[in-house]
């Protein structure tokens, strides 16, 4: 039902999870994901949106290869590089900003790295340690790290959660710029509708746990033209679909 890629069309990422469950401390099995299937075309930006705790992070961990204990199949580019931004920045505190990025991207070009740092406003923080950064800055470093590896697949797990609105908005615009400029296949997980409609080519709506796909909405408006007014109706649709199913 959710075959986004008709036969013959090349999918960069193809996810078919039949079932994913956790063993709760009480011994009961807790079902998190159920019959979730979708695919991403090369260069496509897809947003998974669903209520908090519906299993979005679990799905991202499966796709990233961090969790292999599930029923289903997953197809990724075999030697593809993954860039991932976790919910927390997860920087190595004993390495400076630039060394954190260099560790995962040892062959990154100096000029390209400098340009990336400029885009994200990190140029003056190159030699700082993560303990000296604010959360907003640390999140930018996490973004820089993910982009520096020139990923074939970019995974973003609520990268702007717990930032204030203005900062989240600015970082989101910076991210939109990077994604747009480099045509990286991107999967963004969020519960923020605004974030979803600003960034995505396609929005996938998930139900509460166990997560299933409720609907898929393509967004055809170019990112630059996505003003509040232009997006109002899409946002309303998403909100009602999410609420209606809950």
């Amino acid at each position: 039902m959710n075959d986004a890629c008709p036969a013959g069309e090349f999918a960069l990422l193809d996810v078919r999870i039949g079932r994913k469950a956790f063993q709760a401390a009480s011994g009961q099995s807790l079902e998190v994901l159920r019959d979730v299937a979708f695919a991403l075309k090369p260069g496509e930006v897809c947003t998974l949106i669903g209520p908090s705790g519906c299993g979005k992070t679990t799905m991202l961990r499966i796709i990233a290869g961090l969790d292999r204990d599930y029923e289903g199949t997953l197809r990724r580019p075999p030697d593809g590089r993954i860039g991932m931004v976790f919910q927390e920045p997860r920087l190595l505190p004993w390495r400076t900003v630039v060394d954190n990025v260099r560790l995962v991207a040892p062959h990154a070009d100096d000029a390209e790295l400098a340009a990336l740092f400029d885009t994200l406003g990190l140029a003056v923080h190159r030699d700082h340690y993560p303990g000296e950064l604010s959360l907003g800055l640390a999140r930018r470093v996490a973004l820089a790290r993910a982009f520096a590896v020139k990923p074939d697949l970019l995974l973003l797990d609520e990268p702007f959660v717990s930032l204030d609105d203005a900062l989240a908005r600015r970082l989101r615009d910076e991210l939109a710029l990077l994604v747009e400029g480099r045509a990286i296949t991107t999967l963004l997980v969020t519960h923020d509708i605004d974030e979803a409609v600003r960034l995505a080519d396609r929005v996938v709506l998930l139900s509460p746990r166990p997560a299933r796909i409720v609907a898929e909405l393509p967004i055809l408006t170019p990112r630059a033209a996505r003003t509040d007014d232009a997006m109002a109706s899409v946002k309303a649709t998403i909100a009602s679909r999410l609420a209606g199913d809950a």
Binding site: L66, M84, F86, R90, L92, V104, R145, V149, L155
Partner: peptide, 8 residues
């Protein structure tokens, strides 16, 4: 997780 995702 970071080390694994970024294939260190």
């Amino acid at each position: 997780d970071v080390a694994r995702v970024f294939a260190l």
